[in-house]
Nucleic acid binder design. Sequence first.
DNA 1: CTGTTAGCGCATTCAC
DNA 2: GTGAATGCGCTAACAG
Lengths: 334, 334
Amino acid sequence: MATIKDVAKLAGVALSTASYALNDNPRISEATKQRVLDAAKALNYQKNGFASDLKRTKTNTIALILSDLSGPYYSDLIRGVQDVCTSNGYDFIACSSIGGDQSTAIKFLKEKRVDGAIILAHNISDETCISYARKDFPLVVLDRKLQHDFIYHVEVDNVHGGYIAANHLIEKGHKDIAYISGPTNSFDNKQRFKGYQQALREHELVHQSKWNFVGNFTKEGGYRATKLLVAQRNLPTAIFFANDEMAIGGVRALQEQKYNVPRDISIIGFDDIELSEYLPPGLTTIKQPKYEAGALSVHLIFQVLAGGDVDNYYRLSTEFIERNSVKKLASKNE
Amino acid sequence: MATIKDVAKLAGVALSTASYALNDNPRISEATKQRVLDAAKALNYQKNGFASDLKRTKTNTIALILSDLSGPYYSDLIRGVQDVCTSNGYDFIACSSIGGDQSTAIKFLKEKRVDGAIILAHNISDETCISYARKDFPLVVLDRKLQHDFIYHVEVDNVHGGYIAANHLIEKGHKDIAYISGPTNSFDNKQRFKGYQQALREHELVHQSKWNFVGNFTKEGGYRATKLLVAQRNLPTAIFFANDEMAIGGVRALQEQKYNVPRDISIIGFDDIELSEYLPPGLTTIKQPKYEAGALSVHLIFQVLAGGDVDNYYRLSTEFIERNSVKKLASKNE
DNA sequence: CTGTTAGCGCATTCAC
DNA sequence: GTGAATGCGCTAACAG
């Protein structure tokens, strides 16, 4: 592997001249620059990124840390992050936090291999986040609330989203509404549940614990939870799945028992993943501004890096997406 | 940010002693090692990854380069790569190649910021791959065929997969089989189509071009292609979607026209993405060994890096997954 | 405009 | 065991 030294030698210039030429510094004449470039090409020279980063003590890249790189949910988030990074000339990498505090993701955090990071990974502890955030290393968290000067929060209004969802069901005449929840320790899940309860309370409905199952935010979990729900007979008229993935599993369970959605039972989801539109009969859901969340997060990092004074806390609003999975109940016996 | 120098000073030892202690070199006594470790903790010392990599001229990380980080298809592949990396003490990052040859992914390749890479990204040119592969920088490609000593190939047997799919349909009595294709320049798509044609030929069936639509491997594309197919009346009895994502869109299009799968029309997909099981009525499909492909890829990289002599070419076989989207045609008028 | 030089932070000889 | 010294490849100040 050729180094800049070789290039300089071949071009017959000083090492620094080669460096300047390669970095497009105006102090170098066109002629010599060209000579250096030619030499570089001839030697198939590629700069060593580490050496360069080491010297400049900045990496020009942002990391997005996800607990699982492959969830459908992340698609838009990634795009948002990526777009803003790219348009600011920054690079972007995604790291999985599988392995928790031992993972590659953490290595990147603690060894400062990136200039800033966005975290949406339940298996990374709060302490870890707190211990690595610094002035020149801002962190944006999407899934928790932390007290730290250089940790920034971007969250979507999950409480309100949960409220809208439950409220919609109620307005359609539903009174018996089950809640299939995400992991009980999930911040997002708690918020959605809070909104759900609030809507119920406002309509003087009570949440029955027999209609509360944990589905862990996965298809499989949603499937199992729904099966349990069905098994205990005495079905509710509607189910609120705390995310769309669980709703997908739920629809399958329902279908296996020959229940038709929405004829026999109404369902509503949360997230509006790409697939919800395609899930028969079209899943009514609450849309999260995922792209915006990603874009805003990077934006904040850049501002902090640029020395700007930025707020630590942002909340994005959700949007109601009506499709065909909720039926209006005819008789509202009030 | 504390450096190793600070740690040495606080511990009252030489810089090298601190380095040895931190790296667990046996020449250091337990006592001094402990002192160094304490100092490091006290200063919240974290080594600078770049400096370390620079010195050791290896990064201990493997990159997976994907054209889109978020497809459902990639989930298993990522797990495969990740598992093998982790169990070999390597780190792993995923890069998107959005931006093609200007992307972050390419930066990592050319600046040698990783020790090896796995590529599944149609928007990276063959030339790029060829120009960066070297003995100490092996590349594994999953989506093309290249002639280079240090480029390794892992492919799944798409031809056979296509053959199995079409054959299954034929055995169930279908003779009029549409093919919804991926991007026409896709290597995988071509292979699948070849298998499909082969099965048809063996049964003396002819592929009718009016039943061939391009769906570009996306849900949306599958939806549109299927709509076109339906619009031209005179429906085939079965559709072979060149991947599951398109089948998802297809089911939606069919459903909108009140066609029931499989009662009115049979469909079969390709890939066996996680969702296929959940897509009513359960999508019959061809499973790709994605996890295995990822695992094998990393494995190869490690072998090359270790100086082993490895073959350049591997082919993994596909598996037929029967669910409920194909109906047996009663009358086989032969 | 060009060349010399001093590190970036760390790992690693090689004497002691 | 320890510590001084060297250099990984590059950038950027500084002096010419």
